[in-house]
Simulated assay, not measured.
Amino acid sequence: MVDAGMIPTVLVTDDDADFRGVVCEALVRGGVQTQQAADGDEALRVIEKTAIHMVLLDVHMPRVTGLDVMRILSQRPNAMPYVLMSALMDEAIEREAARMRAYKILRKPVRLGKLREIVCGGLAEAYGWRPPE
């Protein structure tokens, strides 16, 4: 739960460091804190050590993919919302992500304003959080 006045933390997971940086910058301007992970393995380590309220996941990453992370998170009670993103999205990936209750499934490139709206919507639905005015 996000307490009143608390700033939620969104984990941005993508093997493209430039993309992570741009997304994090846009989300911080939207009123949230961010953490970054270069792949799913690093994302899982961050989730174990840090209070994460939402996860953005690229599908195709080395070692542990976004779908692998979603499989692990979907097994947990009260899983945080997660958004799956990919430039190479196909119907099989979309079906698998929907089965694991992804909050949203996005095709890259993603407009930053749209991504910020989705993050704020997920945080509002899951925690009742609203961005600062």
Rank of each mutant, 00 (worst) to 15 (best):
D58K: 09
R107H: 12
K49G: 11
A124Y: 12
R116D: 03
E125F: 09
G122W: 02
Y127D: 11
E96K: 01
M70S: 09
E117D: 15
G66S: 08
A92Y: 03
S86R: 00
E91W: 01
R71G: 04
G113K: 09
P77E: 09
R101P: 01
E91P: 00
E125D: 15
V46H: 07
A79K: 06
L84W: 00
I93N: 02
R71M: 05
L73D: 02
D58I: 06
L73Q: 09
R95G: 00
E117K: 13
P109I: 07
H60T: 06
R63P: 02
D90I: 01
I93P: 00
M89I: 11
G121Q: 13
G122Q: 07
A79T: 05
V59C: 06
L123I: 13
P77L: 08
L67F: 04
G128R: 09
Q75S: 02
I47V: 15
L56E: 05
R95E: 01
L106I: 08
S86M: 02
A124F: 12
G122D: 06
P81A: 03
M54W: 04
D58F: 04
R111C: 10
M100G: 08
I93H: 06
L88V: 09
C120E: 14
A97F: 01
G122I: 03
R76T: 04
P81L: 05
T50E: 11
V83P: 01
R63M: 11
D90E: 04
L115H: 09
R71I: 02
V59L: 09
E94H: 01
L56R: 10
K49F: 06
K104A: 14
G128H: 04
R101W: 05
A102W: 03
D68R: 11
E91M: 08
M85C: 14
P62W: 03
M54D: 04
K114N: 09
E48S: 13
G121Y: 04
I105Q: 03
R99D: 05
L84P: 00
V64W: 10
R71Q: 12
R101N: 13
R71Y: 04
P62H: 09
N78Q: 06
V64K: 15
